[in-house]
C-alpha cells in the first residue's frame, strides 16, 4: 500500500499517522506538502492527518481545504482513490466538499481528549473490513470541534445509504446520549462519501496501533485497507 500523508502548516499528527502506516503496511508513506499540485505516482491511499492546520483560523480546516494539493486530492477521489481524513483531516474533507456536512464546536464547549468507544456499523467497506459489523473498538479523540452536523435531508440520505461507518457508543456498544461525547448528529464519528472511497472520522485510530499505546484497536482500520488494496491489485 503506497500512501501519501498530506502536510499543512499547523498539522501535528502527521508523524503518528506515518508511523502507523509504516508499521501496518510495511511501506514508508510519502509526506506531501500542501503546495504540491500532484500526488506521487502510484498512490493508493491519501491520508489527511489531524492537527490544527492554519491554527484553525476562519473555520477548522477551511484554509487547508483550499490549498493547491486538495485539487489533486479531489481528482484522485473522483477517480475512485481511497482518502482517509482523521480529526482535522475530517474537517478539511468536509470543508473541501469531499464529504457532506460540517464539524461544529463540541456541544459541551470543552476540548475533549480521552479514549472513546466506537461501534463499527458495517464491515463490507475498505475502511472497516478489518473489523466485524457491530464490533466495539476503543480509540482516542482529541478535538474541540467534532460535533458533526448536516441538514435533515443529508442525514437521512447518508443513513439510508449506510454511510455512517463509526458511531460513538458505550463500552457495550450501545449508542446513547451519554456516549455521544460531542453532541454529533446521530452520534456520528465517521462517514464515507457517496461512492464509499472517502472516509472522514474524528477519532484517531493511528494512536492505538502498538502494545506500548495500551491498545491496538486502531490497527484493524489500516490492516483492512491493506487487505482491500492487495485484493484489488
Amino acid at each position: 500500500m503506497k500512501s501519501a500523508v498530506l502536510v499543512f502548516p499547523g498539522i501535528n499528527r502527521e508523524r503518528d499517522m506515518a508511523r502507523a502506516l509504516k508499521l501496518i503496511s510495511g511501506h514508508e508513506p510519502a509526506m506531501v506538502w500542501h503546495a504540491e499540485t500532484s500526488l506521487p505516482k502510484g498512490t493508493d491511499l491519501v491520508v489527511v492527518p489531524g492537527g490544527f492546520s492554519y491554527g484553525d483560523y476562519l473555520r477548522c480546516g477551511a484554509i487547508a481545504a483550499r490549498s493547491p494539493v486538495m485539487d489533486a486530492v479531489r481528482a484522485f477521489a473522483a477517480g475512485g482513490g481511497l482518502v482517509l481524513g482523521v480529526c482535522n483531516g475530517f474537517q478539511i474533507l468536509c470543508e473541501s466538499g469531499l464529504l457532506p456536512g460540517v464539524l461544529m464546536r463540541n456541544a459541551g464547549l470543552k476540548f475533549i481528549c480521552h479514549d472513546v468507544h466506537l461501534r463499527v456499523e458495517r464491515s463490507d467497506t475498505p475502511f472497516t473490513r478489518g473489523y466485524n459489523a457491530g464490533q466495539v473498538i476503543r480509540v482516542p479523540v482529541a478535538h474541540g470541534e467534532g460535533n458533526y452536523e448536516a441538514d435533515e435531508e443529508t442525514l437521512k440520505r447518508i443513513e439510508g445509504e449506510g454511510r455512517v461507518l463509526y458511531r460513538y457508543c458505550s463500552p457495550e456498544g450501545v449508542v446513547d446520549e451519554g456516549s455521544n461525547i460531542n453532541g454529533a448528529a446521530h452520534a456520528i464519528a465517521g462517514i464515507v462519501s457517496e461512492r464509499g472511497n472517502v472516509l472522514g472520522m474524528m477519532p484517531h485510530p493511528e494512536n492505538h496501533v502498538e502494545d506500548i499505546m495500551g491498545c491496538t484497536d486502531g490497527r484493524g482500520l489500516f490492516a483492512g485497507l491493506v487487505a482491500h488494496l492487495e485484493k484489488a491489485a
Partner: peptide, 9 residues
C-alpha cells in the same frame, strides 16, 4: 462563497 462562509451552515 469560496472561503469566508461555509454556506452549509
Amino acid at each position: 462563497d469560496k472561503l469566508l462562509a461555509n454556506t452549509v451552515i
